[in-house]
């Protein structure tokens, strides 16, 4: 899901960087000091979890926890995702620096929609946790496939969505488990 450099056209990458920086500003406004440690710990989890990769259908997928991040951090998720992707790119050569904005927007959208699902009052909590985890993966992969289609790159939307749907189900289970765990040990960590 981390798009490497040299795939998306440069003007799109620059525009995505600009939008990302604006979103970082908007989503960091009026932040409370007590929210910052939670952002740091969630960021560290996101940073490390991507190292668990699973070979699948000739490619490699890994958990991202974007849905869970959306549940925990809400509107503060985007700066965390952007920072984590920046460090993953620098330290692990995972994704590219030019495509950082595109990757952040893809994954940030997934996390944002996961948060939207999580905020719904009429859905049972276990269902929301599952759906948020699934959304956190499937939406970024859909956006990635759409971008590939625009640039004429890659294996096509059906193959990409099929591969990432498997990963999305796994993440949905992780989110469900994590929410259940948080409710037992520290309920106030999730809003």
């Amino acid at each position: 899901m981390h798009i490497a450099d040299g795939i998306i056209e440069t003007p799109i990458c620059i525009a995505a960087h600009a939008i990302s920086l604006a979103l970082i500003y908007l989503s960091s406004r009026k932040i409370d000091a007590d929210e910052i440690p939670k952002m740091g710990i969630t960021g560290a989890a996101l940073f490390v979890i991507s190292l668990i990769h699973i070979p699948l259908a000739g490619t490699s997928v890994h958990p991202g926890l974007f849905g869970l991040a959306g549940i925990i951090l809400g509107k503060r998720t985007f700066p965390v995702i952007y920072t984590v992707l920046l460090f993953q790119s620098f330290i692990f050569q995972h994704g590219g620096l030019m495509t950082l904005g595109v990757n952040a927007l893809n994954m940030g959208t997934g996390a944002f929609l996961a948060w939207m699902i999580w905020k719904q009052k009429f859905i049972p909590e276990y269902l929301k946790a599952f759906a948020a985890g699934f959304t956190g993966v499937i939406i970024p992969s859909f956006l990635m496939a759409a971008e590939f289609r625009i640039t004429g790159y890659g294996k096509g939307i059906f193959i990409i969505l099929t591969v990432y749907a498997i990963a999305a189900v796994a993440e949905a289970v992780i989110s469900l488990t994590a929410v259940g765990f948080f409710r037992k040990v520290k309920s106030d960590i999730i809003t």
Partner: peptide, 23 residues
């Protein structure tokens, strides 16, 4: 790889601490 992981986590916690202190 372990050094890279420690380095990355340290950076994240360092930035977190900086902004927390600032705020």
């Amino acid at each position: 790889m372990l050094y890279k992981i420690i380095f990355g986590i340290s950076l994240i916690f360092g930035i977190t601490g900086f902004f927390y202190g600032l705020k």
